[in-house]
Design a protein around this nucleic acid. Structure first.
Lengths: 237, 237
DNA sequence: GGACCAAATATGGTCTGACCATACACCCGC
DNA sequence: GCGGGTGTATGGTCAGACCATATTTGGTCC
């Protein structure tokens, strides 16, 4: 490219649009999703085609797609065939997890705030689980048994997360479940360290069984109380 | 660049690292944040310098920074001087809002789930606001007055958001406040339409005053009940 | 006809180097 | 000392190439 070649257009149209190119791409893709009835599983056009259609460079398209991928809305796959390219997905968990981890690192969030939020969600979910049928009981019981058999803190925490996620999922609300998942994943390392430091997990398991029994007995009051006691033990103020 | 030039290194070291280049950059930046004690307001090195340090292209650095910007953790500013370049920030609200808007568009979330989550947060916050001093009272009262004076649905909703955000902020939990802000922003258009369709906002204002009075009277029970009634009226099942 | 292998091809991922736009830093003349 | 022009560092965009990956296609052998 020489010094004096024609750069198509000055891109400084008089309308004074202050949006950056990749933001324009972002808006257009969101338009297609909102209006075009695109849904999870559908494919977006390839990066080169998108660049040509929107009259921007492929780099700008890629930055827009990177933003959407960060939010867990698209997932890119190289190669050829029906599964290749940018596919619409819905993985809000990882985005939320990153968001929490980074804000904890930056000290714009404290563990206390994270744990309090978890308590809020889990009490709310426990009350709903106790009220409604209790479809999560089997999975929660399985998780408790798996924790009994866990050989390492990592294993214990993995099944602990499964237990509490089953409780959260019982609310039937995918948003609170996603937030709950992100909360647990963001502080997973802390949890493992706490279990290792604790050594004995008998008290925690007793709490789990109390929560399980309360939900099984459809006792919302007892369930929320048990959750509160459990978190107070696991994360002392 | 000719067809047969030396591309520095094959970048396929035998360690079998399957991470993409921009993810490597992402990890390194996060390392600096976590370990280096970087915090909000601090500047990251320039894109060109970062590219050279990490031995990747500027494009890869840009994609990593775009991801962090999407999460609201960095904010880039062109030009020169102390405020230029990539600066660490903490704006989780916009990221959460985008996440919610996109998942609503994709039908991976329903309005019901969003509203139920809002009810959870707001009841929890109302109980805490009633229990603790009630520092939010002034701001809430101001918002109610502003809603009385609002000339358009847009204005009304803006002050309605201020009212409910003041309530949420009273919890002292920045995480729940951020989620609340995102919930409101993501469904702002719906709220404006609802107000316009309703025409008369007297009932909504009566609810607001009831909430305000309950918090002022330190009556947690009444506050949570008032919040529930208000949301049931605004978003009938 | 079927199984297998090689080439073509479409897609995302990365690199390079250039130019544009912006805003402070610096210096020069007054 | 001050006002204004110029230098320069920074992000934003573009163009074109090459690499890595995975499917599709087509040919070859049995």
């Amino acid at each position: 490219m020489s010094v004096v070649d024609g750069h198509r257009e000055p891109r400084r149209a008089p309308e004074g649009a202050r949006t950056r190119a990749f933001e324009e791409v972002l808006d257009r893709i969101e338009e297609r999703i909102a209006a075009g009835g695109l849904t999870v599983g559908d494919r977006l056009p390839g990066e080169r085609q998108l660049a040509e259609e929107l009259r921007v460079s492929r780099s700008s398209v890629r930055e827009a797609l990177r933003a959407l991928a960060t939010l867990g809305v698209v997932s890119s796959q190289a190669g050829r065939g029906p599964d290749a390219g940018a596919v619409l997905t819905s993985r809000p968990d990882s985005a939320l997890t990153e968001l929490l981890r980074l804000n904890l690192s930056l000290s714009t969030l404290t563990m206390r705030e994270v744990v309090d939020t978890r308590l809020m969600i889990e009490q709310w979910a426990a009350a709903r689980a106790a009220g409604d049928g209790g479809a999560a009981l089997d999975e929660m019981a399985r998780a408790v048994a798996a924790m009994d058999a866990a050989a390492t803190p990592e294993e214990f925490v993995a099944h602990d997360i499964a237990f509490h996620m089953a409780l959260a999922a019982a609310s039937g609300n995918r948003l609170t479940s996603a937030i709950m998942r992100a909360l647990r994943d963001a502080v997973r390392r802390y949890a493992v360290d706490a279990v290792r430091r604790l050594g004995d997990t008998a008290d925690l398991q007793a709490d789990h069984r109390r929560i399980l029994d309360a939900v099984r007995a459809r006792d919302a009051e007892a369930a929320t109380a048990a959750v509160a006691e459990h978190l107070a033990r696991a994360y002392p103020s």
